[in-house]
Amino acid sequence: MTANFFNVLEVDPAKQKELIELLNEGTESVIRHRPGFVSVTLFASADGSKVINWAQWASPEDAKATLGDPAAQEFAKKTAAIAKPSPGVYSIVAEVKAESA
């Protein structure tokens, strides 16, 4: 069962770019090397006030283990110093797709 980890980060628009760079650095140096890692996708709000970090894991246990990793925790602390995080693991409960022609 894939685990979807979302972190909605509220940030001063002047620091959105810095936050994105930090999230990319953490993903490249730590997160992508963790067991069960599938992908990370970042979304930046048009007004600069939010960034959404969507990480996919092979299992909820892999996501949880990563949250406990000291290197991942260090990046989380750096992130929390410039943004207000609101993390959580989510399950897909509905999906609607366009009808094919």
Rank of each mutant, 00 (worst) to 15 (best):
D12G: 00
D12A: 05
P13S: 11
P13F: 10
A14F: 04
A14L: 10
K15D: 12
K15P: 01
K15V: 04
Q16P: 00
K17C: 06
K17V: 00
E18H: 07
L19F: 02
L19I: 07
I20T: 09
I20K: 09
L22D: 00
N24A: 14
N24Q: 15
N24I: 12
N24F: 12
N24S: 11
N24E: 15
E25I: 06
E25D: 15
E25V: 01
G26L: 06
G26M: 13
T27Y: 05
S29H: 11
V30W: 03
I31A: 13
I31Q: 08
R32I: 07
H33R: 07
R34K: 10
P35D: 13
P35M: 07
G36F: 08
G36H: 12
F37G: 05
F37C: 06
F37W: 09
F37T: 07
V40C: 02
T41P: 00
T41D: 10
L42S: 02
A44G: 07
A44K: 11
S45A: 14
S45P: 01
A46L: 11
A46Q: 07
A46N: 10
D47F: 02
D47S: 03
S49P: 02
S49L: 04
S49E: 15
S49Y: 09
S49G: 15
S49F: 10
K50S: 10
K50H: 15
K50W: 02
V51Q: 00
I52S: 07
N53T: 04
W54H: 14
W54N: 14
A55T: 15
A55N: 07
A55M: 14
Q56R: 14
Q56C: 14
A58I: 07
A58Q: 12
S59W: 12
S59K: 09
P60Q: 13
E61H: 03
E61M: 07
E61I: 09
D62H: 14
A63Q: 01
A63D: 06
K64H: 05
K64Y: 02
A65M: 04
T66Y: 03
T66K: 00
